[in-house]
Every structure is written in structure tokens, then in C-alpha cells.
Design a protein around this nucleic acid. Structure first.
Lengths: 148, 148
DNA sequence: TTAATTGCAAATGGTTTGCTTTTGC
DNA sequence: GCAAAAGCAAACCATTTGCAATTAA
């Protein structure tokens, strides 16, 4: 929500396409559409959200393709998927922050980044003698006086 | 893994039954079986795990009942369910710690508790102006030289 | 060229639900 | 007695997959 000028969007899309191509994917029009949508979205969309947004630009796309493209992007570590509150996966570009605060009233997902989270992770890892591959902190709450 | 003598197990089971009854559930033999299994399990079992363990004690139980009882216990806030690595829910008694370290080689789930996690949560909540209802930290990693 | 991608429809698989019978309290 | 719980089988529903046709590189 800050340094996201139009040209930077284009840059990131091109970068992701290049990365995807490098990891063996073919860059089809559908692939580009999905990447653009992910690049533009700040609301951690579900596959269905992405499917709907993609159909507006290219009505011929099928949900199977959306799932397949998202899975390929995830296997290439370009996209991260995770379940937050719901039982559906949510997708976001992998370089975005991986911790979230979910607003229980609005469903809004807020990205969290804080160096202390990593410090805490390191401390816990050391205490248990583990090498951490991935981790996430998820908070669920509401603004006082926000809803209800 | 420390103060879990036999009598304390019995205590906790009776306490959970009382709590469940208080919140409107009927304590059937199946209910008791499920509560006992949860009380004895330290491995964060899935519904299927629980169903299998329950069948050993009472072959007449159905998986639908297991799900229904677990859902009731969760609605009463006596049990917490969450997805960790897999796409199945895992269940644990609500007074157990809610943060986990998942061993990617063995699948073992280790409960984590650390006052700093709560301090961090409070700090983030304050920064964003939220009242946190629930939260969890999940770590995924492996012991160096452990597997693979 | 040729292996990857696509759309469609069918399959998966964990979880839920409708219905009828049984049972806790 | 009566609302809650049980078993069974069917329904759900997000996600995956088989297949035949299309297409990127």
C-alpha cells in the first residue's frame, strides 16, 4: 500500500513471469492474468476470488486452470498459500509478509512484519534444537467498537 | 509430559465431562471415550486418529459421532481444532498450549509455550489497535541430521 | 515438434447432514 | 417424556485429476 506505482507493478509481474519461466512453466495468457491479479491484490484472495477476477479479463479461463497455475507458482516458491480463518486456501506472492492479523468482523487480512517475530522464532528453534523451514504467526481479533 | 499421573488424568476427564454437561451436552459413553482419548493423547490427533482409537474401545462408534462430539466440544471451548501441516483438522484439549512446532521429517507436533509469544501478540495488537481473540504461532522445521 | 497447458466433467476425500431409531436425564 | 445423540448413507464442497484437444517455445 505504499511503494506500488504502476511501473513497479509491471516490474514485479515481469519478474514473476521470468522466474516462473525459469522454473519450467510456460507463460500463457492465463498465467499472466493470474500473476497480474496476484500482483494487484492486497486482500489475500482465495482461488475462487482469483477465478472470478480472472474471468472478468478472460471469460474462457476455467477454475481448474486457476488451481493448476497457482499450484505451479507455489511449487516454484513464487506464491505462498495458506489457510487462515476459512477452510479455503488464500494466496499471496511469496515476497509479501507471511504473518497475518485477521479482522473477525470484516474478514480483512492485514499483513504483519516485525523483526521480533523472527527473533522469537530463532530463540524457540534454538531451544528445541530445530532448523526452521517455515513459520507463521496468525492473529484473530477485532477493533474495539469495530463491529457487532 | 510431566505432571500427568493417573489420578490427574481421571481428574481432567471428570472436569471436562462436567464442563461439557454444563454447556448442554449429554455425557454418553461415546462422549466419555472421546474425552478420555483426547486426555491421553499428546500427538494432536486427527478426527480419523481419534475414530480409530475410539473403535478399539467401542467398536460400535461411528465416525459421524466422532465428528459431532468433537464439534460440540469445540463449540463449548473445551477442545481446540486447527489445521497444521495437513489438510485435516487436529484436535487438542483447549487448556493445552496453542502454539506448535511441526517436525517435517517425523510429523511429530511439539507444543510450544513462551511468555514472549504473548508479549509479542500484545505488542502487535496494540500497534494495530486490535483486540485479539485468538492467535497461534506455527513453526515447521527439522532436527539437523534428523531425517533425510 | 512436442511436452506443457487447457476446459470439461468426473473423481477425491475430509467433514457435514438428513433421517430414523435409541437414549440420557 | 422429550430433546439430544447415534448409525448409516448420502450430500457437500474445495481441490485435484483423466482425457482429448490446443498451444508455447
Amino acid at each position: 500500500m505504499a511503494d506500488t506505482s504502476e511501473s513497479e507493478h509491471g516490474d514485479r509481474v515481469r519478474q514473476l513471469e521470468a522466474d516462473a519461466r525459469r522454473s519450467g512453466m510456460r507463460i500463457t495468457p492465463h498465467t499472466t492474468t493470474i500473476i497480474q491479479i496476484l500482483d494487484e491484490s492486497t486482500d489475500h484472495p482465495t482461488a475462487e476470488d482469483i477465478f472470478e477476477r480472472a474471468r472478468e479479463r478472460d471469460p474462457s479461463i476455467s477454475s481448474a486452470s486457476v488451481y493448476r497455475i497457482l499450484n505451479k507458482l507455489e511449487e516454484s516458491d513464487l506464491v505462498r498459500r495458506q489457510r487462515l480463518d476459512s477452510d479455503r486456501f488464500r494466496y499471496e506472492i511469496a515476497d509479501e509478509c507471511r504473518h497475518h492479523l485477521v479482522d473477525l468482523d470484516t474478514g480483512q487480512v492485514i499483513g504483519i512484519s516485525d523483526p521480533e517475530i523472527d527473533e522469537l522464532k530463532d530463540k524457540i528453534a534454538k531451544r528445541h534444537g530445530y532448523e526452521i523451514v517455515d513459520f507463521r504467526l496468525e492473529l484473530f481479533g477485532r477493533k474495539p467498537g469495530g463491529g457487532n
